[in-house]
């Protein structure tokens, strides 16, 4: 699959924003680490909304015909893309009102704030899950059609969210969140490692034989029928060499997991956390690029690939 930068930016940015907001609400509800003050909620909360909003804007500009983008909410019942749009759009009012109440409302309004917080929390989980399901629901791409895909999106979203949260906290308030970050890091790294081992393992998949119906003989492409590329070769024909994929995976694990882990276990300063967060987010960009670059669409079988 062709890795489009706008979609990479969108999924990384909105995943981190939604994960950050979910953790903020959880910390507020369960008083994690002694609870966050309303001032401590405000700045990360605003950043989260900006990350999600920026991501959504970038995804709209990725469309070939953005003037119809408002129609994307019309097929909530069948389309995961539509669901992501609906959950994402609903997230903004609930998240904003929750932050507003945390900032301005008196103590007696606490239950109202919690109600808005819980709704925003559920919406952010639903939105990240829907992002994952957009890819996981496609039977045409074996590398995506797995429960690991939404699991990875949820884990990486919360992992990058907790790093962003830590980057906002002064060192004396970090306590529990450092442990939370290490736990989320472990979960995210393990899930992603399982995914990488899983996609290179041999699979039963569509082949050029099932694609053409000639099941009892070797089938070889003689002529693609076009002289230059088509929409299909541009969108689905993208490939990276195995060597580069391995190098990129190593870079991703190093800057997204190993370096932040070293910072986290070494009594992190706020500045250290900012650098670790940026490093992890860059790592996630690499991860998302690979997620697209490694996916092989079955239409490639018609262009000569023997299996997908």
């Amino acid at each position: 699959m062709h890795p489009a930068f706008s979609v990479i930016f969108f999924t990384v940015s909105s995943g981190a924003g939604l994960g950050l907001f979910a953790l903020l609400v959880l910390a507020d509800l369960f008083k994690l680490g002694g609870g966050l003050s309303s001032q401590a909620l405000l700045m990360p909360g605003i950043l989260a909304i900006f990350l999600v909003g920026g991501g959504f804007l970038s995804s709209v500009f990725h469309l070939a015909n953005p003037k119809n983008s408002w129609r994307a909410v019309m097929r909530f019942r069948t389309s995961w893309l539509s669901r992501e749009g609906v959950f994402g759009l609903l997230f903004f009012p609930f998240a904003s009102i929750y932050l507003g109440l945390a900032w301005l409302a008196p103590e007696s309004w606490l239950p109202v704030r919690y109600v808005f917080g819980i709704v925003a929390l559920l919406l952010s989980w639903a939105a990240i899950f829907s992002t994952g399901m957009i890819y996981a629901c496609l039977k045409t791409i074996r590398q995506w059609n797995t429960p690991l895909t939404p699991a990875n999106y949820l884990a990486l979203g919360h992992f990058s969210g907790v790093l962003l949260l830590l980057a906002f906290l002064p060192q004396e308030n970090q306590g529990l969140f450092v442990f939370l970050a290490i736990a989320l890091l472990a979960v995210a790294a393990f899930l992603k490692a399982i995914y990488y081992f899983w996609i290179v393992a041999p699979h039963i998949s569509s082949t050029i034989n099932t694609a053409t119906g000639f099941n009892r003989a070797k089938v070889k492409l003689l002529d693609q029928g076009h002289t230059h590329g088509t929409f299909l070769t541009q969108e689905f024909g993208f490939q990276v060499a195995r060597k580069y994929r391995l190098i990129l995976k190593a870079i991703f694990f190093l800057i997204a997991f190993v370096y932040p882990l070293m910072i986290l276990i070494g009594n992190p300063t706020q500045g250290g956390m900012v650098i670790a967060t940026i490093s992890a987010l860059l790592g996630l960009v690499v991860e998302r690029w690979l997620f697209f670059a490694e996916a092989r669409h079955v239409v490639n079988l018609y262009h000569g690939a023997q299996r997908c």
């Binding site: 990725h62 469309l63 070939a64 015909n65 119809n68 045409t140 694609a211 929409f231």
Partner: peptide, 27 residues
């Protein structure tokens, strides 16, 4: 053609390569 927003998602779901985006109209 009046409703399509050109997100390419349908072409991802099609195994037969039947759908092609027209860059001029964005649909």
């Amino acid at each position: 053609q009046d409703k399509c927003m050109g997100c390419n998602f349908c072409s991802w779901a099609c195994p037969y390569g039947a759908r092609e985006l027209d860059r001029a109209t964005g649909t």
